[in-house]
Amino acid sequence: MPRRSLLFLFVVALVCLPIQSAHSANYPGYPVQFIISFPPGGPGDTTIRIIHPALQKNFGGAIQLVNKPGAGGAIAYTYVKKAKPDGYTILSTMSAPLTVGTALRTLPFGLDDYEYIGAYAFGATGIVSKPDMRWKNLDGLLAYIKKNPGKLNYGTSGAPTAPYLTMAAILAMQGLKATPVHYKGSGPARNAALGGHVDFSAGGFGAMQALIRAGKLVGLAITDNARDPKFPKIPTLKEKGLGRASIGLWAGLWAPKGTPKAVLDKLSAALQKTAGDPAVVKKLNKAGFRVEFVDGAGAKKLARQDHETSKEIMKAVGIKKK
């Protein structure tokens, strides 16, 4: 046994011998990997896949999309945090695990563990119900809950998600009571409202748009800063004086702490150019996102703001950090 095993170990050592990796002077020397914290088809996956071809062109190098889903995004965030800051591993995902997730749970990463490259797609939380309910808008719904405290059920996209926090905050601000039923994602939450299993649902607005357009669901409110031009009749929470319940849901790019500034700038510039491409904008709008480029510093500010809002809501609603 010994001789053969020693030979084998020698082979192992030979193959593992360290070899210098590419220099940053001619970045990108080989394909850059974008780590996505969602499974294929998830919300943060669709956005990056839509901009991928244009981004690749504007960036001037190959970009590989790699899904590392799991633990509500924590696996991908941790992976990128630990990755070499050479610009070849970039985190491409939605802000929620970083902003909302770190507020709800003790996680091995935080807001300051990354370089912010920029944000490009903004989603909203949508509150929907079936058209044949007793209310026709948000005010009607809230009044109905007031008359029937604790009677209604609402579907959410999950306990640790922004739509749940938003809905719980609205109810808490008005001193109302309704029971949350947590589903696994916005799609199932929306289906629960559609099938009449819950009275209304809060989830990602993007997932709801097709059914709202078809008249099978009614949009009661969205969380964004301004009304969606495709759905001018759906009011924002801000208009209703409930703006403090809004938590941003946006897609962006992050890099491991210590990534060279030149790399960040190159990616940021490519992202900005891509976000200005009308074809990209049109597709992202169709998928339910508003397109706006926010640079690294701005994105960091947004993240901090969302994080603080989440913490405030948790305090007001009485959710403890786990």
Binding site: G41, D45, G187, A210, A214, K282, K283, K286, A287
Partner: peptide
């Protein structure tokens, strides 16, 4: 999307700017 595989199919529709649904 009733399953993970169909969710990817949904993404395929969306990347082409087509919204799957009743319409």
């Amino acid at each position: 999307a009733p399953s993970a595989a169909v969710a990817v199919l949904t993404a395929a529709f969306l990347t082409h700017g087509v919204q799957p649904g009743p319409l």
